[in-house]
Design a protein around this nucleic acid. Sequence first.
DNA 1: TCTGGGGTCCTAGGACCC
DNA 2: TCTGGGGTCCTAGGACCC
Length: 343
Amino acid sequence: MPLRAYEGRGVVTTSTYEARALGVHSGMSPMRAARQAPDTLLLPPNFEAYRHYSALFKRAVVGIAPLMENRGIDEVYFELGDLDPDSRSLGLRLKGAAHEATGLSCSLGIAANELLAKIASGPDKPDGLTLLGPEDISRRVWPLAVAKINGIGPKAAAKLHGLGIRTIGELAAADEALLDQAFGARLALWFRESANGVDERPVVTESVTKSVSRETTFERDLDARADRPRSSAVLVELCEKMAGDLARRDLAARTIGIKLRYADFHTVTRDLTVPRPVTGARDILTGARECLHRVTLDRRLRLLGVRAGSLSGLSAAAMPGHQGELPFGEDSAALIGAAISRD
DNA sequence: TCTGGGGTCCTAGGACCC
DNA sequence: TCTGGGGTCCTAGGACCC
């Protein structure tokens, strides 16, 4: 379907390089994208296929570099350690394995830590391979915009701009007291370290799910009173789906929460901690309804969501005292991180 | 008639306990 | 009786990421 024909809600989740050249970027509303490039084709997402290719890709690369950290469907980090003294040939092997398994290209950055590897994965997209050494920081990292630092988003970037700080180099050189005052000591310290290429985080190869959620944006905003049967049915459906998600992963939840977004985009959450872990749709629904009683339902509703937190494995839930969590993570002296991201 | 869905982490205040 | 400090849990919101 050409973008021009699209009506309704949603966002562009990603776009081809050709569409990007026409000004169509992820996060845009399709309506706005249509004004930029009306003849661009809009394809429906297929998350099942994405998960399938994600699994193929990860299985292929972890066979080469086993210390792998998952960071979403299309991004992983490796602790390369001393796998191969020739980083470039190792990088080519990883990219080759990903391509062989999926037919897709990816971009890879190799550097001393995750922060720099992520930055290095960017400039040569698509199908890039970039090595970034400590000596490259001033020349190749400092000229970049502060938002290139993973963790500096639109809000922080705008605030930094307000202080006259636009590049990573300017952030590295910024007055300490000024940053402290504007962002607090903790964040300011993290800014300064990041701007200087310092990142001590280890590559984390095991992770525990902390929360599970389901939410939906209505095709049209719902009226609190008139659409009550509809919103009620949606809530039941969300709870059932989430119960299925928990069951599939053998998890039980001790907190149940809801999320509401009003027509004006204002968002509220409520949550409730229950005495013992719950798993079933009925218990989840009971908790969600209790939460709903604590919000005012007097405005049109755009989104409704449910969330489960304080999770425990089912075996752990039955056996208090065991959280089912294993400590992990030895710091390695010679850390070589790498970020791969799908193009 | 902008702005999806599924996550993580951080902050901050109040309750409660020692 | 008053003052106080620290730790943990619970709740709400917000920034950020893929």
